[in-house]
């Protein structure tokens, strides 16, 4: 039981942290660019992004399943029922959240910071980094929210991961299984572990929020 718990916890952290980081690696730059520049149709893109916050996890799971199934276009990659598939599914869910929240926090400070940085001699890249750093409270909150959604999500990872013991079983799918089996106490322990993991990750991120990153 103890080694089961450890494996499930470590895999949960690995999958959700990877999904959040990989999604952030794309979503934060995209959100920054969208927040910095006023382009045509920005409002439409914004509204669309906000709508995707409510994307149902099971639908995301179903889409990824159809994509990765042997009959699907990417079936030959043999990614179905692997942690990689779970990471992919969580990325799909988390990406719009991080993009949207980054965009709104960047656009809040963009005007002032952009001008200040440029008058002090920043080039385009440095300006973007400065704006991002000044918007960090919002951006890191965005990443936190994304991680929260990723690690608490169950429908999509159950669908594409399969809840396979020692392989794709994570905290949430284990909770579902144990509840179904009637092991309520163990399910609650798993829930407590999940919250602890989230707390630790949030604590680490909070430090970045306070200190910032130097250009």
């Amino acid at each position: 039981m103890a080694s089961d718990l450890l494996h499930v916890t470590v895999l949960s952290i690995f999958v959700s942290v990877s999904a959040t980081l990989l999604a952030s690696a794309m979503a934060v730059p995209l959100g920054t660019v969208m927040g910095l520049h006023k382009f045509r149709g920005r409002e439409v893109v914004k509204t669309f992004t906000y709508t995707l916050y409510g994307f149902p996890p099971v639908v995301a799971g179903l889409l990824i399943y159809l994509l990765l199934s042997q009959r699907g276009p990417l079936g030959s990659l043999n990614l179905l029922f692997t942690p990689a598939a779970m990471i992919l599914a969580q990325m799909v869910l988390v990406f719009p959240i991080i993009t949207g929240l980054t965009m709104s926090s960047v656009s809040q400070v963009a005007g002032e910071v952009k001008e200040t940085a440029m008058t002090l001699g920043a080039d385009r890249w440095q300006t973007a980094k400065t704006v991002l750093n000044e918007a960090r409270i919002g951006v890191i909150s965005a990443i936190m929210v994304g991680f929260g959604r990723a690690i608490a999500e169950v429908g999509a990872v159950l669908m594409v991961g399969g809840n396979i013991r020692w392989h794709t079983r994570v905290l949430t799918t284990a909770i579902v299984l144990e509840t179904r089996r009637g092991n309520f106490e163990y399910a609650l322990v798993l829930g407590a572990v999940l919250l602890t993991v989230a707390l630790i990750v949030f604590f680490v991120l909070k430090r970045y929020q306070d200190k910032g990153v130097k250009i």
């Binding site: 001008e115 200040t116 008058t119 002090l120 920043a122 400065t130 750093n133 000044e134 960090r136």
Partner: peptide
């Protein structure tokens, strides 16, 4: 641009220490 400076009526302080604010243009 890097040889000019503009001081505005309401300057924007970066969310950091006074020291880091002043060091910023040098880091750039």
């Amino acid at each position: 641009r890097r040889k000019m400076a503009l001081l505005s009526q309401k300057p924007y302080p970066f969310k950091d220490t006074v020291w880091e604010n002043v060091a910023y243009p040098l880091r750039l």
